[in-house]
């Protein structure tokens, strides 16, 4: 086994409980739906009217398939984001808090590899879990909608992938900021980082107002870095929109643009800065 694989495996052992939280929550959610369905069935019978949906025409079915699979990413995406924040804020200080730093640092493996394994698992690990949940959601949706109504596979798949990428990018940017914070602060990195950003933001607003300066506002920059141009197009009459065109446009909005490159570079810089700070800290 390579050293990196061993590090990943060790980090998986240490954080698998948190990483699997979205799986359990989504599983519980499905269980509740099944119970609710069962109660409804026992009380009202299986008299569900699918006729309205089944009369829909292409491209409406395609657009609905596209957006519904994208929207289905909401709950698992949010959970994965929360877990990413929890894991990244303690990525580089948890060993210190648990008094295990000396043991891990006494192994002949480069700090860069160590931090890369932690970065990969606390951000990429959530991506993997999110992909797993999405694949299950997608399979379920494909089967159910194909049986009971109409379903268009490719737009739905594109919707799911684009939804995933939205969450990947958000977790990458926010996760890498907290990864850096975990190298600087020993505890409560998330709260301290938020307080510092808010503090600097407020201070700059006051200074800009008082002296007519144009100091950059950190939270505005962060918002700009994270926000997407409006995803085309949730408003208007969806039956008039050509689904292939819509998907193509959203590939441009979500993935293929300069901001994506900027987000990747930003995360890379955060990772490198975190590693350098971590590497040069004393181990007492």
């Amino acid at each position: 086994m390579s050293k990196f694989a061993a590090l990943l495996k060790k980090d998986w052992y240490l954080s698998r409980k948190q990483l699997l939280i979205p799986v359990w929550v989504v599983g519980g959610y499905y269980l509740l739906i099944m119970i609710a369905g069962l109660i409804a069935y026992l009380k009202f019978g299986a008299d569900i009217e699918w006729s309205d949906f089944s009369r829909l025409e292409f491209p409406t079915v395609g657009i609905l398939s596209y957006f519904s699979s994208m929207v289905m990413m909401g709950l698992p995406g949010l959970l994965a984001l929360l877990v990413t924040l929890v894991l990244t804020q303690s990525a580089l200080n948890d060993d210190v808090k648990r008094n295990a730093e000396l043991f891990h640092r006494s192994q002949p493996v480069s700090v860069w590899q160590r931090t890369l394994a932690k970065f990969s698992l606390s951000i990429g690990g959530n991506w993997a879990i999110l992909i797993l949940i999405s694949a299950f959601n997608f399979l379920l949706m494909t089967v159910l909608l194909s049986i009971f109504a109409q379903f268009n596979f490719w737009p739905a798949l594109a919707g799911m992938v684009q939804g995933l990428i939205v969450y990947f990018k958000i977790t990458l940017v926010l996760g890498s900021i907290l990864f850096l914070a975990s190298a600087v602060f020993r505890d409560k990195a998330f709260v301290i980082t938020l307080a510092i950003l808010a503090g600097v933001h407020s201070l700059f607003i006051i200074l800009n107002f008082a002296f007519g300066w144009h100091l950059p506002l950190p939270l505005n920059y962060l918002y700009e870095l994270l926000k997407f141009s409006s995803i085309t197009s949730l408003e208007g009459d969806i039956s008039t929109v050509e689904v292939r065109e819509l998907i193509r446009e959203n590939w441009g909005v979500i993935v293929f643009n300069w901001k994506t490159l900027l987000q990747i570079i930003f995360s890379g810089i955060m990772y490198a800065a975190a590693t350098l700070i971590y590497k040069n800290k004393e181990i007492k």
Binding site: Y13, L14, D95, N99, L102
Partner: peptide, 10 residues
């Protein structure tokens, strides 16, 4: 080291 610094979670 003089403290027991093995990883308790493993």
């Amino acid at each position: 080291p003089d403290v027991n610094c093995l990883d308790n979670k493993l």
